[in-house]
Simulated scan of single mutants.
Amino acid sequence: MSLDNLSINFATVRQAGSFGAIVDACLRHGITAISPWREHVAEAGLVEAARIVASNGLRVTGHCRGGFFSAADAAGRRAAIEDNRRAIDEAAALSASCLVMVVGGLPKGSRDLSGARQMVEDGFAEILPYARQQGVKLALEPLHPFYAAERACLNTLKQALDLCDKLGEGTGVAIDVYHLWWDPELEEQVARAGRNGQIVAHHICDWLVPTVDPLNDRGMMGDGVIDLGRFRAMIENAGYRGPQEVEIFSHRWQARPVDEVLATIVDRYQTVCQTITGAAAAT
């Protein structure tokens, strides 16, 4: 079975080390799509990272990450804008399909959630013209409500799509199963995103029961309670045929050899995540 639509987010295999080492590990398993993190790009150097991508014919399904617009003062907000401009430059140099945006939570000491959301909207409005100029799509990623205070005050797909509709061209959404599988409006909002061509990334993992650490105890596909086949059918029925990007923050899996992790991912991708469009949705 082809692995063309399987992508590896570097967070899944941090134990492999450098940008080049992670790429080499992916290539050993026939995986040619990646989603790097900025720290790996910075360590390698942007020019070298872009060379590795080009020389190996890699597809960069996303660059992680921009966002974190909310801050306690004007200087902090300005610093966030400038950092996002740098992230856009990196995404453009890597020919990434999108820059994944984790928007930010409450500023330190604040309880004003609506104010934080306004900061997020204002931040997007300021950087979007530059992203359009550079040809970089901004993928808003709503995070599970657990993260509302510290990481992302956009927590449902509807919230993210409402903001995309306000901002317009150059925006879309990253649909991560870990963050959205529970959403009672999921099917309706995925269909809405599909109608408007706003699905630009699809991240997969699983939700374990129990989950002992909401940040670093994500599950390997098939080990938890998310119906990944049905979820993928929903995405495909909405018109998205792009990669499934494996993003597993997990102390358990990052303690294992990288080749074991990647071999398991390939197996689960082929046995758990694949679906014929519409088949799972009909069950």
Rank of each mutant, 00 (worst) to 15 (best):
M101I: 11
R151L: 12
V47Y: 13
L128C: 10
A25G: 04
F68E: 14
S110Y: 05
V60L: 02
I88A: 09
G229Y: 03
I88P: 03
E90V: 15
K137W: 12
T283A: 15
P145V: 02
A49E: 06
G222A: 05
V266E: 01
V53A: 04
V13L: 00
A96N: 07
A79S: 12
V41Y: 00
Q198N: 12
M220V: 11
R59A: 13
D227Q: 05
I127Q: 04
T32N: 14
Y269P: 00
L140A: 10
H40N: 13
T61W: 02
Q274V: 10
R241K: 12
A191Y: 08
H179F: 00
L167E: 10
L27H: 07
T275K: 02
I265L: 07
Y147D: 09
P129D: 15
R151D: 09
R232L: 11
V246F: 00
Q133V: 11
H251K: 15
A44M: 06
G172R: 03
E187R: 13
N216K: 15
N196P: 00
R85F: 15
P243G: 08
V136H: 08
A75I: 10
A149K: 13
A16M: 04
E245K: 06
R195V: 10
L186H: 08
G20Q: 08
G170E: 04
R111A: 14
E141Y: 03
G45L: 03
V120R: 02
R28E: 11
D227S: 04
E245V: 14
A255E: 09
Q118L: 14
I34N: 02
G170K: 01
A152H: 00
R252A: 11
S70I: 13
W253I: 05
L140N: 06
G197A: 12
C164D: 02
A125E: 12
E48F: 07
I265G: 01
P214R: 15
T264A: 06
A238K: 01
Q189N: 15
P210Y: 10
S97R: 12
C273Q: 08
E82C: 08
D183N: 09
R218D: 00
A25C: 07
A193S: 08
A193L: 10
A72L: 11
P243L: 09
D4E: 15
A72S: 15
Y130K: 04
I52E: 06
D267I: 05
T211V: 12
A263G: 08
A54Y: 09
A255N: 11
A87G: 06
N237H: 09
N237F: 03
Y147V: 06
I235E: 03
V120W: 00
R59I: 14
V100R: 08
L46W: 14
G135I: 08
Q254G: 12
L6G: 01
W37S: 13
V41H: 00
A49R: 04
V266S: 01
G242A: 05
F19R: 01
G197P: 05
Q274F: 04
T156F: 05
I88W: 03
A282E: 07
M221Y: 04
G242S: 04
V246H: 01
H29L: 02
V41L: 05
G222N: 06
G239W: 04
A174W: 01
R38C: 09
N84V: 04
I127P: 03
A131S: 06
A11K: 13
S18W: 03
K108Q: 13
